[in-house]
Design a binder for these strands. Structure first.
Lengths: 152, 152
DNA sequence: GATAAATTGTTGCACGCGCAACTAACCAGC
DNA sequence: GCTGGTTAGTTGCGCGTGCAACAATTTATC
């Protein structure tokens, strides 16, 4: 039974580390994006996700899953961004319940100016986290997750 | 310059994975703890952190850092838990600005009943995440972070 | 084709959060 | 001891979020 308890404790420890690093990055990135681009982290996430689809449309539900947000929060998030002219709703023809969203020109423009801010805040937060002994292992493990397969 | 861009993109990818996994775990654990123990995730985190100090006292500020919460949120979080009789404020004598918090008996009791719920929700969420190809690598990397050094 | 069931997205409401401004207590320097 | 500056914790306020209930559309069953 000791072995099983160990597994539980190891998972809990990993989760605490994950949550701590997430909180550190998110809060510092939130401030940077908010003051320099008038964007919250989730708003940036949406713009970035839409841009990454590149011409492909995303439904509200996919947006909700990509941001871990409830349907209602997704609705209002899209409302805010639409009111600012950063994206547009597109009723899709084959399923009239569904709603696609698409970046506008000023949306991709704002994303382009926000990306360097996002990237720098991320690098900065990771550097700070690397100095904390309980977070350093996770910081070092992150880049190795999606290791590039050496070109053949 | 391509190399530097790669590093930025790899960091961003790691951050997206981290955020996605965090959101998945947090939202599923939130529901479990909320319905079965009337506790939010942060509230559980506080009780757990206090219990882990085991007799040692924590200041509000430390609590705020442990939960990545603002000072005001920390105050109200402690208020809620104190109103429910789960912890008590203790004015500390040598610095009369500082406030220590301590688990009450019913606080540790509730924590004891909530821990299995927390652990099971975590295991369940990790299992689900392991089935998603973009999250699986991080799920597998987590337990290895604080690897036990083989006894010499 | 009509009805039931499931799915998609939107609104009313209460609640927890961060920011800014504030009070209280400590800590220089003199 | 008193003044200026810093730190710890608390409140007012606006805002974003989840939950539950809802309207609109699709899909299944007969």
């Amino acid at each position: 039974m000791g072995i099983k308890d160990d597994a539980v404790e190891i998972r809990a420890q990993g989760w605490r580390t994950l949550a701590a690093l997430h909180g550190l990055i998110e809060s510092s990135m939130e401030k940077a994006l908010q003051t320099e681009a008038k964007l919250s982290v989730v708003e940036y996430t949406v713009l970035d996700a839409l841009a990454r689809q590149d011409g492909w449309h995303m439904r509200m539900q996919q947006l909700g899953r990509a941001t871990a947000l409830s349907p209602s929060a997704t609705t209002r998030l899209v409302n805010r961004l639409e009111d600012r002219g950063l994206l547009t709703r597109i009723l899709c023809a084959d399923d009239r319940r569904g709603i696609y969203t698409e970046l506008t020109a000023s949306g991709s423009e704002l994303l382009a100016t926000a990306k360097p801010i996002h990237d720098e805040a991320l690098e900065c937060a990771l550097a700070e986290a690397a100095t904390l002994p309980e977070l350093a292992p996770l910081v070092e493990a992150l880049p190795q997750l999606h290791a590039v397969v050496p070109a053949s």
